[in-house]
């Protein structure tokens, strides 16, 4: 019996960017762990297919699809309210939408830069801000943002992408500093190379993990109340070195 009683309420999660990649894997993981999941993403057909698949599992809490483009910022407050109305509560908010547009080493394309920032940063602020308002009142909740190792340093390859992930990491840190005292947990996820659509833009990936592996790491970190994780965890060590690398060396490198 899957009876959601006041004593044992079904937890609820929103996953933005649930149609593919890490977002999809996290949505599956949360559904598997008994969450009712609101699936938000731009590609309605893939979203509906995932939704149908999750709801077909016996004994599953339900998943609901909400097709939405995160750059339609004006829609977000109303959509957030609709999800809350439909599912009654919110325990976990995951922002996993992200794009990485291929960039040449001498390319300066404001159109691409803006699109990257809109999806990776402004969409995140719009969604996480809604959830933060809610969690602040609830006095509990998990905010999860999928940032990247790319946010730790500005490298030569893709300035806009690095900037967007640095901004997201800083935004999440600010939220954490605001909300920890209100009982809210904020998790910054910094994946290395994950086998998703974004990887197509990478020339020579290494240490590639599956989205499922990343989702499992995120779930564990969320349960343990970690502030930040690298997946794979060895990226933590690598990025420590990268962060401490002096500029006179770093600006000569080509990665």
């Amino acid at each position: 019996m899957n009876f959601s009683s006041p004593l044992t309420p079904t937890p609820v999660a929103i996953v933005v960017g649930a149609s593919s990649g890490i977002g999809e894997a996290v949505a599956r993981k949360l559904a598997h762990e008994g969450y009712a999941v609101a699936l938000v993403a731009r590609r309605a057909d893939r979203l509906r297919a995932l939704c149908a698949e999750l709801n077909a599992r016996p004994g599953a809490a339900h998943a609901v699809a909400y097709p939405h483009d995160v750059t339609h910022f004006d829609e977000i407050p109303a959509l957030f309210q609709t999800i809350l109305r439909d599912l009654g509560r919110l325990n976990v908010m995951v922002y996993a939408s992200g794009i990485m547009l291929p960039s040449g080493f001498s390319e300066y394309n404001f159109g691409k830069d803006r699109a990257t920032l809109e999806v990776n940063v402004l969409g995140a602020m719009a969604w996480l801000g809604q959830a933060a308002t809610y969690f602040e009142q609830a006095g509990e909740g998990h905010l999860v943002g999928i940032s990247s190792v790319a946010g730790d340093r500005g490298r030569v390859s893709n300035p806009a992408y690095h900037t967007s992930k640095a901004a997201l990491s800083t935004y999440l840190e600010s939220l954490r500093n605001r909300l920890t005292r209100k009982g809210v947990h904020v998790l910054t996820v910094k994946p290395g190379y994950v086998d998703t659509d974004l990887l197509k833009a990478v020339a020579r990936p290494f240490w590639v993990v599956s989205p499922e592996q990343a989702a499992a790491d995120i779930w564990r970190a969320m349960r343990r109340g970690k502030q930040q994780i690298y997946t794979l965890s060895r990226w933590g060590l690598v990025m420590w070195v990268v962060r401490h690398m002096p500029s006179f060396i770093f600006r000569r490198l080509r990665f």
Binding site: L7, R89, Q130, T133
Partner: peptide, 23 residues
């Protein structure tokens, strides 16, 4: 103004503080 107004969110609990939700 939109309905319901987002700044009206507040946690409500039962007498025994064992059950609550934000409305």
């Amino acid at each position: 103004a939109s309905f319901p107004s987002a700044d009206r969110l507040a946690l409500l609990t039962n007498f025994g503080h064992s059950i609550g939700s934000v409305a």
